[in-house]
Design a protein around this nucleic acid. Structure first.
Lengths: 255, 255
DNA sequence: AATATCCATTGACCTGGATCAATAATCGGC
DNA sequence: GCCGATTATTGATCCAGGTCAATGGATATT
């Protein structure tokens, strides 16, 4: 844990300008946008969600929860990056997603977590006890609706990833990965042609269904072709159109 | 279609014993279990859901809705099998799931369908107009909750499939496919060691991220090993344990 | 500064599954 | 029942990406 952790503090809503929660918290936490849920909440609801949540910090490379563990909590990521992993008993691993600020973890609301969540960087989350979260959320139709939309979006992303894993080439996979990450960073408000890649090559490989060597070779190839520049802890996109070509099918268009 | 089809008829709930919908419908439809939603509905709610839904039939190999089309309807499959496909412009295709009776289609509730839904067999569905469905469902917390759980379950299945697509061998993929199908048929009440495979080899290949030839060879191999018997339109499982071995990782367990 | 550890890159080679190419079943349509 | 069309099986060959191995570069430890 690098920075001081204020005792349980608010993370329920978009920052009220002059936020005082009456519990001695400053409100840096509130500056993080939580588009998924907190868009349309009433002040009273914010107060209540507030009471349900605790801020937690996790150092890089620690586990927020393990695959198949009882799903006691729901998390909203406010800072950092989390990887969601499924593993086979022999160690083969598939990363099913990288969570960025605003994303929910454990929202499937099943008995047990289907994936493990591991901090890629330092991570800050809002943690909700599941029963309290459920009890609160029940009877808030627009909130339920919001959560459902979030789940639907997740499902849609998962289906895109299935298409990628099942039918795309190594080059298309890496290109799609970079372009998606860029889009997501932009949505989090960190738009830039330089994409931070805090995760390891092994993580990228396990996300794309490739090996570390193939990821490395493909990135090198893109760099040779002047489509990207590899920088410390990231990549600078030079010719997005060119990357898109790798991503999209270069259709054969007969006759 | 095996049994007579009455004109537009109810499909909103688990069969009330002496079902009369007041619209001249007999209730064979209601015998189909819809565990996902209809488990805990009030009679009044059933009536209303009833009014919102229409029964539709689709012949085999027809499309219920197309990828990227406006998501005007929500469907509940009551009979038959539907494949959910995503395609790349050059024709590469990934089947992201096969729907069986009880499953919902278009529940992500987004503007447009992310996948195409195509009837594998003759299909019967309950169709809901999306706005009506949403309006009805809003303010029914337990129903929303149910739908959310369904979406969560879908997501979990999608993640399992990602692990399969990204990290399993052809043999493991085919074995997992057969075992999953068996489990699902059992849940639909059609338990048997003989698994119907109404979909084509190409469908199976596109579901597992393989080619038709590899699917065929792998099934032949299992048959040679006396783990399955290939029968017309299906497969009979002989040694489920053996299949499970192919499916699960045969862990190397060092020292 | 030297050493150990870990991770990424690069090269050489191999292989599981793809591709290409015949058959062989199966299914409609008469 | 016969014929053409579609789909499945089987075999021969190929190659994208995996495996194995060496090297380089970065970070941490003493």
């Amino acid at each position: 844990m690098t920075f001081a952790e204020p005792s349980p503090t608010s993370c329920a809503g978009p920052a009220p300008r002059d936020c005082k929660h009456g519990r001695g918290n400053d409100c840096d936490d509130c500056k993080v946008r939580r588009f998924s849920v907190c868009g349309a909440l009433e002040p009273a609801e914010l107060e209540e969600l507030d009471r349900l949540s605790q801020v937690r910090n996790f150092p890089a490379r620690t586990m927020l929860f393990d695959q198949d563990a009882p799903a006691d909590n729901v998390f909203n990521l406010t800072d950092g990056m989390v990887r969601l992993c499924k593993s086979l008993p022999d160690g083969r691993r598939q990363i099913v997603g990288f969570a960025l600020p605003g994303d929910f973890l454990g929202l499937a609301l099943m008995e047990r977590y289907g994936v493990a969540a591991e901090a890629v960087t330092q991570v800050r989350v809002c943690r909700f006890a599941r029963p309290a979260f459920l009890a609160y959320v029940d009877g808030k139709p627009h909130l339920l609706r919001r959560l459902h939309e979030f789940a639907g979006h997740e499902l849609s992303l998962a289906q895109d990833q299935m298409l990628l894993l099942g039918r795309k080439t190594a080059e298309e996979k890496v290109a799609a990965f970079l372009l998606n990450l860029q889009t997501r960073y932009a949505r989090v408000g960190a738009a830039s042609v330089t994409i931070p890649l805090p995760m390891s090559r092994q993580d990228i490989a396990d996300y794309l269904g490739l090996t570390i060597e193939t990821v490395s070779r493909t990135l090198t190839k893109f760099a040779r072709e002047k489509v990207i520049v590899i920088v410390p802890d990231g990549v600078r996109l030079l010719m997005i159109g060119r990357l898109d070509q790798s991503d999209a099918a270069r259709s054969a268009v007969p006759f």
